[in-house]
Design a protein around this nucleic acid. Structure first.
Lengths: 347, 347
DNA sequence: TTTCAGTAGTTATTCGTATAACCGGCTCAA
DNA sequence: TTGAGCCGGTTATACGAATAACTACTGAAA
């Protein structure tokens, strides 16, 4: 009538009965990888019964015996809602599945109470480990409950330096972006950064450092007039690009430390009746999926390796190393489109 | 010393020993909501021991007895990677957590084999139900393994009409979008659709139907010259907007059935040295987070209710109704920005 | 004085699987 | 002829929590 019984499906005992063997035999036949322990006849009977009944193992019973579940916890502040970062979950899940594990995901939205409670539930499910992902690259505090639990910080870094972290290599990214413009022949290269250096934001500081390092190696002086610090919005991209391009000694190329800023720069260039890349080359950062490919011309930019990072984080959990504070930085690959060319007048 | 023992933490027996009572007492004290069955003294001893040892219940043992786990499976084709649809997971997870349940998520990327295998694993975890989410609104086939399992199709519809579905109300959305322009005083309203009607795509067909219905109710003739069918890209938005606006009898407003198309239309308007909304009003659809708010002027559009749909899908699973093929359509709220105003010359 | 009800717990069993320990029968070498 | 060793299984038990069924005791009513 009303109630719906859990409808638990056949158990190993049912299979054993159907096959005319003991439950232990079923278990051994199904699990022993190497075992030529049973006769082919018996194995066949067991497999037949399994198929006939549609038997499916009960993961909880298994976990109860073995102590660890085939699941990995994934906690993100709001990573799933951040448009481009869903890929991070995708990567984590891919890698987990390669080892037959599933992902138990929670987005806390920054709510520490929810975080603690859901983490607690996760641990009660005996997850094999926990990935703690930040929405953007920063230094964060790992919840206390994770001490003693195999865990990895993803797209951020453990401030305390205890838990291993996986994050994008901002310095190398900034370096490569500047290099790309240097190689094209530019020497007056502006930088529109996403934040001040004082913010300590790894993305802002790192990309700046890479920019500086590339110029230095090229034997170029860093011109402070060519470096602007905004807040990451396209308005700032617009404003600073406008200032730079209308200055007395304008740059021939702009490295925008994020794609949104680049978009603003595009609008400024358009308003000035200039063109990209003819009059000014632009390189972005983030490879924002809903933006970079659709700009005209397509924006040459660098991709945050979300999938790769997600994969790597899970991998670190799977190879149960001792928890060290190591920080693994992953390369941001260049996505070549059409916003870079030689400077106009080569002196 | 290499191996790392699972480190299973204290059990109820340990707590019982520490408190000087039996395991059953611990269980009853911790779970009996109404029970004034035990003395305050005993309850205190138990709670003290729980805190002292840091006891955490073993969810698998619990599930093994009870038959159903505190988890809901979430299978998406590539929903997590779709930039704007991460919110759908967010909504599902929110609602699940309100009942203390966690989400077991898998993105199959359309891989049917992975889908079957991971679904199997999910079911072996005795999930309370499964949400089967489509990346975009369409009619899809529910995997066989879900028959008999409590499940809901999300952001799509079960082609077979067996499983309940939750999807956006495209018709009402298209109707409201057209209404918005009619109310502003427009009577020549173009539609740039995202697909042909033959495609059967609910978003394309539904939004068109809403458009038609709104015009009809306003006593206006549907002018076929004002309706274009593209492929959803911004190039088509550009192309058709250009055609429409340069025609002999141009529209005063355009309803773009998606924001990307609207973006293309913006570019066309800009290239024609016209302005939005002064010369032409534009309404979009999707409220694409990384696009709609950043266009100048901000794009008035309609939001796909991802969070609400995710919530509703889980809700349907929680209130274990008999599986019916019901399709619940959810409203797409208007996001008012600045791309709509009165037509220029009111005759 | 017996009976009944209530209080405050305990004991025993169950869920489904994995595995250690065992067992009967057979072969083969000493 | 005995015993060691293998083959092909079975029996028994443990994992951790929930709960039905029971016990031991107290106090009050009949």
């Amino acid at each position: 009538m009303a109630g719906s019984r859990p409808k638990s499906g056949p158990t190993m005992h049912d299979v054993a009965a159907a096959a005319g063997v003991s439950q232990a035999t079923v278990s051994l036949v199904l699990n022993s990888a190497s075992g030529s322990r049973f006769s082919e006849e018996t194995r066949r009977k067991v497999r037949d019964a399994v198929n006939r009944l549609g038997y499916r193992t009960n993961a909880h019973a298994k976990t109860l015996r073995e102590g660890v579940a085939g699941m990995i916890g994934f906690i993100g502040d709001t990573v799933a809602t951040t448009p481009f970062a869903g890929a991070i979950i995708e990567g984590a899940q891919q890698r987990a599945w390669e080892d037959g594990l599933l992902l138990l995901t929670v987005n806390t939205g920054g709510d520490k109470e929810l975080e603690a409670a859901s983490l607690d539930t996760m641990l009660s499910y005996k997850v094999a480990g926990v990935v703690y992902a930040g929405m953007y690259h920063r230094r964060l505090d790992v919840p206390e409950a994770l001490t003693g639990v195999r865990s990895v910080v993803l797209n951020s870094q453990d401030r305390a330096g205890r838990v291993a972290s996986v994050a994008p290599d901002e310095v190398t990214g900034g370096y490569a972006a500047t290099q790309r413009l240097l190689q094209a022949g530019h020497s007056r290269i502006a930088l529109i950064n996403i934040e001040t250096l004082e913010s300590g934001l790894p993305a802002a500081v790192g990309r700046y450092d890479g920019y500086r390092k590339a110029l230095e190696e090229a034997g170029l002086e860093l011109d402070p007039d060519l470096v602007r610090f905004g807040s990451g919005g396209e308005e700032d991209g617009y404003k600073y690009a406008m200032e730079l391009l209308t200055s007395s000694n304008p740059p021939t190329a702009i490295f925008c430390a994020n794609d949104r800023g680049a978009w603003g720069a595009y609008q400024a260039v358009s308003d000035l009746r200039l063109s990209i890349p003819g009059d000014v080359s632009v390189v972005g950062f983030d490879n924002q999926a809903t933006l970079a490919p659709f700009l005209r011309p397509g924006l040459t930019t660098f991709e945050l390796p979300f999938v790769a990072m997600g994969r790597r984080a899970v991998e670190l959990i799977l190879q149960d190393a001792e928890p060290d504070g190591r920080v693994e930085l992953m390369d941001c690959p260049l996505i070549e489109r059409n916003s870079v060319t030689h400077p106009k007048e080569t002196p």
